[in-house]
Design a protein around this nucleic acid. Sequence first.
DNA 1: TGACACCAATCTGTGCAGGCATAAAAATAA
DNA 2: TTATTTTTATGCCTGCACAGATTGGTGTCA
Lengths: 244, 244
Amino acid sequence: MATSLHAHVVEHLGSRIISGQIPRGSIILAADLEQKLQVSRSVIREAIRVLAQCGLVNSTKRVGIRVLGAESWNPYDDHVIRWRLASDQKGAQLRSLTELRISVEPMAAELAAEFAPEAMRKELMMLSAQMNHYGRQGDLRRFLELDIRFHAVVLAASGNEMFANLSTPIGAILRGRTELGLMPERPHEEALLWHQSVADAISNSDAASARKNMESIMRRTHNEICSLWDGAPRLFVNPAKSSQ
Amino acid sequence: MATSLHAHVVEHLGSRIISGQIPRGSIILAADLEQKLQVSRSVIREAIRVLAQCGLVNSTKRVGIRVLGAESWNPYDDHVIRWRLASDQKGAQLRSLTELRISVEPMAAELAAEFAPEAMRKELMMLSAQMNHYGRQGDLRRFLELDIRFHAVVLAASGNEMFANLSTPIGAILRGRTELGLMPERPHEEALLWHQSVADAISNSDAASARKNMESIMRRTHNEICSLWDGAPRLFVNPAKSSQ
DNA sequence: TGACACCAATCTGTGCAGGCATAAAAATAA
DNA sequence: TTATTTTTATGCCTGCACAGATTGGTGTCA
């Protein structure tokens, strides 16, 4: 995936910082990196710039590149999410994302019912029909892809780009759930009905029903998945001092 | 604010792209930028790398630096949010952020009631008391800062770092609301009570009450502010094709 | 002797200039 | 149409000068 050199360096350092192999407070010297990774300064510097934007490092003169702690990481950065999911913080990352989607998706459904363009309403009807079909057949592989698409379309149909942007990590959650065998061997009948009802409600511009049924989906999804992060510690960040 | 040279270039290009002065699809050549901005290649390259991570540009060989459209921008990036708030998309940005906070804050309050560390529960009690005091006095300036801090602490106390990270842009919303004179000349009595109730509920680990009262705050806040984006078009992003 | 202010040495990121390699578009030939 | 060559802008590398922060030493005064 990492085709360019600097992307490779970003990947190398980022994954190590987030996994804890390079502990917070460490000081890295650009010159050392050049030698260790056998790349030129320009590559190192571009990579450091990217990592700095992710909140992973903080380079200052005369001291070097300081590795920052988890409270500085940008939790919405795609890199950061991916690296955390691949580390032993996987549980905590899944929990954060799930709490976020539980909060957001009912509102997204409500907004979609009000604002979605016609094409998306139609696609949702089609998707829920297919989910019914393949779900009852027990074709989990295909059901999963449809499910991911369904939620992505609802988020996009809300017309809120911040919601829409959550579809990738939410897709990752759904994939992770089936990979870990947390899905029943065939989808629950209720779940199928709720998805159908969400699609119907959005199609009929029934915002209240869209929200209510999406809330039902979220409740069940939470129950199915929350065992994943039993005992993972919560991360309490210091609230940012309000600065004019 | 932009101390280093490359940050200056990021600021220059980023603000222009988001404001539309540099339209989507434009092709920028690094060599031209060097000359126009009178900086060296390394500065340009680092800046471009940062902008690429924001989703604003996409540099490819032989063609140059392509300016991307709004659907590619990372809506959670601090730069992007700031630039959009300073552009004529201010309304749409405020709406997206408000819809997000309306979705998230009730859940944050609920989680805070369950998990918040003692110090944060105490701070919330103190903050709501001070809000009562200065609010009844009509000291809007001080009330605003307390209000911002209150919501930041609730988000942080949820123990969800994705929630906590929203406190900065939410603070920006609250500031914008008072700057634009959308606040009553002294806070509504109900609003003061709801904040007090949220603090009490979190303090007493009463999750349901914390959520309920926060929902009330959100409903009112929405009513007060939604006139800001009357008629601003919603942004429907193409849902990402689910790729393994 | 000891505390403190000030200055110089040093170290490291930042920025500059220019070179070669390479990939992808465009133009040309088959 | 298809294959090949040419063009051209980014990717990558290197040597050099500068800026700013830390450190340590120096001198002054109590």
